[in-house]
Amino acid sequence: MAIGEEAIVRSELRWAAVSIGVVSLIMLALIYAGIVHHINPPSNIEPIDPKTLHLSGEFTEANLGTRVSAEGQVTSRIVATQFTFQPRCIVLPANQRVTLRFATPDVIHGILVTGTNVNTMIVPGYVSQVHTVFTRTGELLMPCHEYCGLGHSEMFATLRVVPASEFKPDAQGRVSCDAR
């Protein structure tokens, strides 16, 4: 045979190099998105006891929902539980950095917000945290996207993104859907 085995293997290895080049381009684009646009996975190794989180600390009922701190930081605390969110409606300002913090007292849940990159699992034992900036105003859906039991299909919340002018915290820094 005129075409030797070495020539064949060479052609294969050249193609493998092209393949590695292609996936390297993708990896570079991901590093760019991570560093320049701050788009990274919502990793947050912050343990919390699911059995007691409702009794004391930041996830007690009085602390849930959106709060603006004295420094102006906007944080929303949400409990995901079989088969609802507390609260079921959350108000957040547009074009401003906000932090969403989730915890669950029971089983695995997860959320996404339609039309955005907001997405995290909510795993019992950990606080899940997502920082983001919402650029469009309006009502967005925030469903539970992970199977959590027979009532999973009915588990969703509404996220109301309002212009900064309509985002008015009360004296304690609280903003809720009922207040409007």
Partner: peptide, 27 residues
């Protein structure tokens, strides 16, 4: 990748290894 309990460092390492899985497929 969307779980809270693993760090971005190990997630990125395994994503890089995942990218290499495409090599035998493309071969």
């Amino acid at each position: 990748l969307m779980d809270p309990h693993q760090s971005n460092a190990f997630k990125f390492l395994q994503v890089a290894l995942t990218a290499l899985v495409s090599v035998p497929t493309l071969l």
